[in-house]
Simulated scan of single mutants.
Amino acid sequence: MSRIVYLNGAWLPEEDAKVSIFDRGFLFADAIYEVTGVVGGKLLEYQGHAARLQRSMAELGIACPLSPDELLEVHREIVRRNALEEGLIYLQISRGAADRDFAYPKDATPTLTLFTQAKAVLDNPKVATGISVVLLPDYRWARRDIKTVQLLYPSMAKMEATARGAEEAWLVEDGFVTEASAANAHIITAEGTLVTRPLSQAILHGITRASIVEIAQQAGIACEERAFTPEEAKAAAEAFMTSATNFVLPVVAIDGQPVGAGTPGPLTLKLRALYVARKVANAI
Rank of each mutant, 00 (worst) to 15 (best):
F228V: 02
E173F: 06
R81V: 06
Q257M: 14
F247M: 13
V74S: 09
P154T: 09
P264N: 05
R140I: 05
T129F: 05
L249R: 02
N246T: 15
T178V: 04
L44M: 13
D30W: 01
V172H: 00
P105F: 01
K270E: 15
Y46P: 03
P154G: 04
R80C: 06
K279Y: 13
A142T: 07
Y33H: 13
Y33F: 15
L66V: 09
K42V: 01
R3P: 09
V259S: 03
T162R: 13
W170G: 14
L53Q: 04
G96F: 01
V35G: 09
P65T: 07
E160Q: 14
A97G: 09
N246D: 12
L53T: 00
A10P: 13
Y139M: 11
D123T: 13
P105G: 04
E225M: 10
L194R: 11
D16K: 10
I21M: 13
G265Q: 08
T36W: 01
A236R: 01
I78T: 12
M159K: 14
H75V: 11
M241G: 14
D123S: 13
D30R: 00
V79F: 00
A163I: 10
E232C: 06
G9D: 02
L27Q: 12
A17W: 04
P198Y: 02
A169Y: 02
M159W: 06
R143G: 03
F26R: 12
E15A: 10
N282H: 14
V251I: 14
Q92A: 08
Y33P: 13
E77L: 10
L151R: 00
L271F: 09
A236D: 07
F176A: 08
P154H: 05
A261D: 15
E224K: 09
V149P: 05
F240L: 05
A235R: 07
M156F: 13
A31P: 03
A210H: 10
Q117C: 11
V74E: 09
A128E: 15
L12R: 04
D99T: 14
A183I: 01
D145I: 01
A97T: 07
R226L: 04
K147Q: 08
L171V: 00
E15S: 11
D23S: 10
P68A: 02
